[in-house]
Simulated assay, not measured.
Amino acid sequence: MSATGPRKLPIVVLISGSGSNLQAIIDAAQAGLPVEIRAVISNKAEAYGLERARQAGITTRVLNHKDYPDRESYDAALAAVIDDCGAELVVLAGFMRILSDGFVRRYEGRMLNIHPSLLPRHRGLDTHARALAAGDAVHGATVHFVSPELDAGPIILQARVPVQPNDSPESLAARVLREEHRIYPEAIRWFAEGRLKLDQGRALLDGKPISP
């Protein structure tokens, strides 16, 4: 630690919507999470998360995927913005884009995502309704490293949420979201402190494999 405090890890956050997980990260950073959010990037100009970033004095960028002819050209433009920010970690926080394999490989071990289920259960969309339809007793959220296969990267941290008999997808989603807001900043802290790494396809915390 220097006289000015611990080094802050430069990160970018990618969003497509309301940005509630972004807000949790902003709040954590203001409370001492050792990161500097260099930019919040969205593929949708109307994403409310951009307003959250502006209110916190964070640079925002919009890259509309409709302005690009294909996924690869969009991802190349996105990577250029990320690299121009000097980001050492890419944080996906409700970024509703499937990323190309080349993009994922470019940031391998330096890109995190949070998914609203206990992976490997319920990859993809509509996880809360699917958990209820399956009769799951427990649901939750998962922070993981991003891999080319959708929602299949090495698991870092999970939060378990009991399913109540009278749950609707909306009520279950609300309780899961509260846990997302808790565990995502924690996983980012581990990375920022150098405790979390990806090694040969395994997530390691303090040099030991993480088991969900």
Rank of each mutant, 00 (worst) to 15 (best):
P120F: 00
V81L: 10
Y107L: 01
N43G: 07
G135I: 11
L118V: 02
A77Q: 00
T60I: 02
P34R: 01
H115I: 02
A39N: 04
P148V: 05
Y107T: 10
P185A: 01
D84S: 14
P116I: 01
V104W: 11
A141P: 07
V40G: 08
I26R: 03
A192F: 04
A187E: 01
A28P: 12
S117P: 05
R175T: 03
N21P: 11
P148N: 08
A129M: 10
I15D: 06
A173Y: 02
R189T: 02
G207N: 14
L198C: 12
D70T: 13
K197Y: 13
D167I: 00
V81D: 13
G207M: 11
E51N: 13
K208R: 15
R106G: 04
F145R: 00
I25V: 15
T59A: 14
E36N: 12
F191K: 03
L205I: 03
L198V: 07
A79R: 08
A134G: 09
L204A: 07
S168C: 02
L119P: 01
A80N: 06
R160F: 03
V35Y: 05
G194N: 01
L125S: 09
L99K: 02
P69Q: 09
E193D: 11
T60Y: 00
S18V: 12
G194E: 06
P165L: 03
G5A: 13
K66H: 15
P209M: 13
G49T: 06
I156P: 04
H115L: 04
Q23C: 02
Q164Y: 07
D136C: 07
A80K: 03
A79L: 04
D75G: 08
Q30L: 14
V62T: 13
R123F: 08
Q30Y: 10
A28N: 11
M96H: 01
L204R: 02
M111T: 06
A192P: 00
A87I: 06
L89D: 05
F191N: 04
G194Y: 04
H115F: 03
M1H: 15
V40E: 02
G102R: 05
T142K: 08
L205Y: 12
H65V: 12
R52E: 08
V62M: 11
H122C: 08
K44T: 11
A137N: 13
V91Q: 07
I41Q: 00
S2L: 15
D167Y: 00
R97W: 09
L63E: 04
K197N: 13
A133K: 13
D27N: 14
A53I: 01
K197H: 15
P209A: 15
L22H: 11
G109H: 03
F95I: 02
V12I: 11
I25D: 12
L132T: 02
V138Y: 14
I114C: 06
G102H: 08
R71K: 13
A93K: 06
Y184D: 05
Q30F: 10
L198E: 06
N113I: 02
L177W: 01
Y107K: 05
G124A: 04
A131E: 08
R61C: 14
K44G: 07
A173V: 08
S2G: 15
R175I: 01
R7V: 15
G102L: 03
G17E: 08
L150S: 05
A141K: 11
G153W: 10
A80M: 01
